[in-house]
């Protein structure tokens, strides 16, 4: 082992910011590509990932945060992250400029089981920025649209101006390849859409429980009520998938911080089928 790779799993690789795009105040989408040509030429793909996986994103001198990939897995050689400014590192990430160098470690964690869902109806339920880790799965479903039955995106967010990926939502809705429904917790005078929590979008919706699988990402309380609502409609717990979030520092089951019951969210998750975590979902402060 050479000195350079002595701590390789813990060493960020430099990436250059290609483009930034403000989704809303305090939320930015970044496209990055390897800064080192050797990384870019790596056929394994320095930027490979499966929908649902995350990277540890490093801002020089400031720190590192886990961010799920929000871009298209079929676009090799680059990665897209959507970041909400909630702390020192994410504030810095929201302020980066094209050309700046960030660091990446990963990809880490489990993925949305998109291949295994072939032939099924898929309900994608997102709460707030939970849409970001789901977007790569939606891209996959759209690219292989003929392999799936009915596909719906049920997206809930706080208010009309906190809707992310608006061009995507419009495009998906217009292409009519998937059923897109959006709700907000509180509308404004220009909002003519649905107001209420995301589970209300399930009400009255026809679904065949035996055929249906669901992908859920958002605040834990949103996933809890969504999973229970789906289960009440007859969808099996094993066909519901949730993406968990915990504090994490290493990504390789070593720092111990992301424990969730018996699991390390960084490696056993973040994507879990609901039957594996259902017994923990109703307990506070796990």
């Amino acid at each position: 082992m050479t000195p350079a790779d002595r701590s390789a799993p813990l060493h960020p690789r430099p990436v250059r910011v290609l483009e930034t795009r403000a989704e809303m105040p305090g939320c930015t989408t970044l496209r990055v590509a390897p800064a080192d040509p050797a990384d870019a030429a790596d056929p394994a793909g320095a930027c490979g990932f499966a929908p649902g996986q995350f990277y540890m994103v490093y801002v020089f001198g400031l720190g590192e945060v886990p961010i799920s990939v929000s871009g298209d897995a079929a676009r090799p050689g680059e990665l897209t992250f959507t970041v909400m400014a909630v702390g020192a590192v994410t504030r810095a990430l929201c302020a980066v400029r094209p050309g700046q160098t960030l660091g990446l470690r990963g990809p880490f964690g489990t993925a949305w089981p998109v291949e295994a869902l072939t032939g099924r109806d898929v309900i994608v339920m997102a709460g707030g920025l939970g849409l970001a880790p789901l977007r790569p799965a939606i891209y996959h479903l759209l690219r292989h649209r003929d392999r799936y039955g009915a596909v719906a995106l049920l997206y809930g967010t706080r208010q009309p101006r906190s809707i992310v990926f608006a061009p995507d939502l419009t495009g998906w809705r217009e292409a009519a390849a998937i059923d897109v429904a959006v709700t907000v917790d509180s509308g404004d005078r220009d909002w003519s859409g649905h107001v209420g929590v995301v589970t209300e979008l399930l009400k009255g919706r026809r679904l065949d429980p035996a055929r249906t699988a669901a992908l859920l990402c958002g605040p834990e309380i949103m996933m809890r009520f969504s999973a229970y609502a789906l289960r009440d409609r007859g969808v099996a717990a094993g066909a519901i998938h949730v993406s968990m979030e915990r504090n994490m520092k290493c990504g390789v089951r070593m720092c111990g911080r992301c424990q969730y019951g018996p699991f390390f969210v960084c490696d056993d998750g973040p994507v879990f089928s609901f039957d594996r975590v259902e017994h923990l979902f109703g307990i506070r402060e796990v």
Binding site: F60, G61, R257
Partner: peptide, 17 residues
Amino acid sequence: CFCSRVEDVTDLTGDHA
């Protein structure tokens, strides 16, 4: 017990992390 945290630091110039 094996849990750990990480701390990212720089020197005063900000060029060394």
